[in-house]
Amino acid sequence: MTKSLRSTLAIAGLVLFATPLQAGQLPDAIQKSGTLHLSINATYPPLDFKDPDTNKIVGFDVDLADALVAKLGLKIEWTDVPFAQLIPALTTGRTDFIWSGISDTPARQETMDFVDYLKTGPQFYTLTSSAYEKPEDLCGKKVGSIRSTQYPDLMRAWSAQHCEGAGRPAMDVVTGENSPDVRTQLKQGRIDGAVQGSETIPYISKQEGGVFKMLGSPIAPFYYGIAFRKEDKAFRDLIADTLEGLIKDGTYKKILDKWELSTIGVTTLTINTQPR
């Protein structure tokens, strides 16, 4: 046998051998339809957002998800929903899993399992034109963040430690409905600084010509994870395995670089923040 024929047969054998195992871990409905139905909150660049020119949902999550399901021979149908609808969508089965920049927290782990795929953390930022240099400069000032996230609580905890704890006035935590709302308030001067996932700030700032600057480093590191229902363990493991494959073969790193997220990629895969 020629070398190429042997390789071809080997690969064919691998595929033939591998596929039945993989197919067995996919839920039946998905296997039959060949399509994943996923809810996504497309208001969070660079992870999930709508391209203003084409109105298609794009972002890091979308690219990585596409690469992942290509390996499984599936397609994805994305549905844009408000952030608050993501978890109900998982509970009702409207979405097969949540891949939408949702953070892995102990409270959520009670009802969901997370395949962690990004390690990031909330980050203070402000207008490049402002005089603030470090997060402590924002003590006693108005700092905004998205209401529906964990960030307001994290900010209050940080303020208790680094502002009040150090004899400075407490940070005034203000809320906004979503990321553009918070940035609009920052630009108008209603707030002096803001907090958002550190993954978003370089991308957004670049888009607006460097209008934002980050202060300090992330205040509470956490993972973004792909959220599964507790009963979908086999499905979850299948996705985790496939993701590990993407990390090993360099696809993961390429997509990270594309979206300016090189610093926040994971190296070892964790589930619910625990190594496998």
Binding site: A84, Q85, I87, P88, R147, S148
Partner: peptide
């Protein structure tokens, strides 16, 4: 960001996920 009853209710469910 006016804290009428729907705002208050949603602030709670953002924290504890008890949306419905």
């Amino acid at each position: 960001q006016y804290s009428e009853v729907l705002y208050s209710a949603s602030s709670i469910y953002y924290a504890n996920n008890r949306v419905i």
